[in-house]
């Protein structure tokens, strides 16, 4: 697959990119192990041949897409900020297409209030899934309006190339105004549902990880402050921006909501 894409400047932050050495070798991808160096080390344990993404649930035209189908969507490059709940951050050029385009194809019904994302389950190959560190498969979710937001991206590439396995090949979600764990990797199923789904992290530690998980310097994680972040490769921290710097585009999704309660 020759990667064809154009830069989308409207949705790109004008920021210096993180050194790819860092973004490609320092990852949280517990399916491949919990150490930051595990995903790169065990990358070849993730088998992506014949990959399909099943889109199902509350829609008129449920459909299973193979990667060729997904590459049919116009691929664009966007430079996004990425903020991990642990307090580190990066600036990454993703390649992909808006999730909204994919969802429109299956024609969601009025009952589709939320979108649930299910990641790969392959305990025979994935070293991290030998242990129940999390309730596998990894599950995440978005509210319908968050999923349809133009910033919400299905990513197929990074730094001008196809996604390497450790970054969630062959296709992953990127939601730049939320903590990194909301951006599911290696997605195999997308379900349109009526009720708010429970993510793997919510199930693991409900007091620490909520459904929304919007980047917010004013709402501390129960165990650490979120006021600052350390860009990968840097020694010192800088202030974290509300909604990770995307407030102009997304704050209206949450008007009237108590962001401390809906963390």
């Amino acid at each position: 697959w020759a990667l064809q894409f154009t830069r989308n400047n409207q949705y790109s932050a004008n920021l210096a990119l993180t050194d790819p050495e860092h973004a490609l070798k320092y990852n949280n991808f517990y399916e491949l192990g919990t150490d930051k160096s595990d995903p790169y080390r065990y990358a070849d344990r993730l088998k992506t041949d014949g990959w399909t993404v099943e889109v199902t649930g509350e829609c008129l035209k449920p459909q299973t897409f193979n990667m060729d189908d997904l590459y049919q969507f116009t691929q664009e490059e966007r430079i996004y900020r990425f903020r991990c709940v642990e307090g580190w951050s990066m600036v990454v050029p993703w390649i992909g297409f808006p999730l909204a385009k994919l969802l429109k194809q299956v024609e969601p019904t009025s009952k589709a209030k939320y979108v649930e994302f299910v990641s790969i389950y392959d305990p025979k190959n994935l070293p991290g899934q030998e242990y129940r560190v999390l309730d596998w498969p990894y599950r995440e979710g978005l509210r319908m309006d968050e999923a349809m937001h133009p910033l919400t991206l299905m990513a197929t590439g990074i730094y001008g190339k196809e996604l390497p396995n450790q970054n969630g090949a062959p296709i992953r979600l990127v939601v730049p105004w939320k903590y990194g764990f909301k951006s599911s990797k290696s997605i195999v199923q997308i379900r349109l549902v009526e009720k708010q789904p429970t993510s793997s992290w919510m199930a693991a530690t409900p007091s620490e990880y909520g459904f929304y998980s919007n980047v917010n310097p004013n709402v501390a994680h129960p165990r650490w402050s979120q006021a600052k972040e350390r860009p990968l490769g840097s020694f010192f921290r800088k202030p974290t921006l509300i909604f990770n710097g995307y407030a102009d585009q997304v704050a209206q999704l949450y008007t009237g909501m108590d962001l401390k309660k809906y963390f």
Binding site: D19, K25, Y26, L232
Partner: peptide, 14 residues
């Protein structure tokens, strides 16, 4: 030594 040679990885402080 690794500090001096800037070889502490992506998150050197961590």
């Amino acid at each position: 030594w690794r500090f001096y040679h800037f070889d502490l990885g992506a998150n050197p402080v961590e």
